[in-house]
């Protein structure tokens, strides 16, 4: 009598240790009683051993170092490069950047100049009386008038009797 598929699969599962404990005992008893089952189990076991021993070692067509160097090159090719090394800006671009920075600085200077006013301190208001140490100055900002009053030469010339023609 030929063994059905289900029984054959059960034997395969038994061999692989995939059956529950109760089934394992039942199959073990069955194998012990049935010669056909014993023969099939023996054949399956031999086949498995043959397959396990037949897994050959895979060998690379190139050396180990060369293989891994190719892997490393592939990884490096796929990684993005740093921006700074990517492209050096041209002289015109660098010049333009400098000019823009300088323009910003010029804007600041322009604002400062407009806010502060004319450059430099320049000459300031002063007075020097060369011949009259007794001179005095009065300035009325409201009237927009400045008075410089001299005691010399008029009074001196009056004393010397030389003032008659002082105005003419």
């Amino acid at each position: 009598m030929e063994m059905d598929i289900e029984s054959q699969l059960k034997l395969q599962a038994f061999l692989d240790g995939e059956l529950p404990e109760s089934d394992t005992r039942e199959v073990a008893n069955w194998v012990a009683r049935d010669k056909e089952a014993t023969a099939l189990l023996g054949e399956l076991r031999n086949t498995r051993q043959a397959l396990a021993g037949a897994e050959g070692v895979m060998t690379l067509p190139e050396s180990r170092e060369f293989f891994w160097s190719k892997v490393r090159r592939d990884i490096e090719r796929q990684e993005p490069r740093p921006v700074a090394e990517a492209r050096k800006p041209s002289l015109l671009v660098q010049w333009r950047r400098l000019l823009v920075s300088a323009g910003a600085a010029a804007g600041v200077i322009l604002v400062a100049l407009l806010a502060v006013g004319p450059l430099g301190a320049g000459p300031s208001e002063s007075e020097s009386s060369m011949a009259d140490p007794g001179a005095f100055t009065y300035r009325d900002y409201k009237a927009q008038a400045t008075l410089v009053w001299l005691s010399y030469p008029a009074e001196k010339e009056i004393a010397d009797g030389d003032a008659a023609d002082i105005l003419q």
């Binding site: 060369m130 011949a131 410089v148 030469p153």
Partner: peptide, 24 residues
């Protein structure tokens, strides 16, 4: 002919500077 007094100041339009002295 001689410099009697020298004054340095701002002088906007309309403003005056008066230099004077006593006379007989």
């Amino acid at each position: 002919g001689e410099k009697v007094v020298k004054r340095t100041q701002s002088l906007p339009v309309g403003e005056i500077v008066v230099i004077g002295g006593n006379a007989p």
